[in-house]
């Protein structure tokens, strides 16, 4: 195989990884195949389903619509990076568990990343705003009701977190 390899450094969940990839390697495939971070799921591979959504410099983006070479130099957060430093579930993960926001779990990583950024931008979403926040993500199991509940619950948990941080400081 003579396809040119690009030596790039990816910063994923705060850890730097040096990899050699062909230019056409999608970020989603680099995460899963080159780095073994299989939490990011791939459904449609053309931007429609949202399963592959990761945070790039804090903003949700489709990892199936980015090349790994383009992600070099940016901070990428995958679902593996959403847990608390002590390994406990982060607020969005916790809310999904409490509200039964998942069944098979295929779509879940994309929802978790999208909602993490969504509640950072809008810390008190109404139910309508919660629906809007997840409108670009498809779930074939839950019927969305519990995901909408989980968005509101996650926002609540994140607010509690901030309140206790402020209290501790």
């Amino acid at each position: 195989m003579s396809e040119k390899q690009h030596e790039i450094r990816l910063r994923i969940n705060g850890t730097e990884h040096d990899v050699a990839v062909p230019a056409r390697r999608l970020l989603s495939d680099a995460l899963r195949h080159d780095l073994g971070l299989t939490g990011t799921h791939v459904g449609c591979e053309h931007g429609v389903c949202g399963a592959c959504t990761v945070l790039v410099d804090g903003e949700p983006m489709r990892s199936c619509l980015m090349f790994a070479v383009s992600a070099a130099g940016h901070d990428v957060t995958t679902v593996e990076g959403l847990a608390r430093p002590d390994g406990e579930l982060g607020p969005v993960q916790q809310a999904f568990r409490e509200c039964h926001g998942l069944q098979c779990g295929f779509c879940t990583p994309g929802f978790l990343t999208t909602i993490t950024a969504g509640i950072a931008e809008n810390p008190e979403p109404t139910e309508d705003e919660a629906r809007d926040m997840i409108a670009g993500n498809l779930c074939r199991c839950t019927g969305y009701q519990n995901i909408v509940k989980a968005v509101c619950r996650a926002a609540e948990l994140a607010r509690d977190d901030r309140a206790s941080e402020d209290g501790a400081a």
Partner: peptide, 24 residues
């Protein structure tokens, strides 16, 4: 040319386009 890739990358993945060079 590759800008945001939100139209071009799907075309590439579906092999509806196969340019020899991408200028990001």
């Amino acid at each position: 040319i590759l800008a945001g890739g939100q139209s071009l990358v799907p075309l590439l993945s579906m092999r509806l386009a196969a340019p020899a060079v991408l200028v990001d």
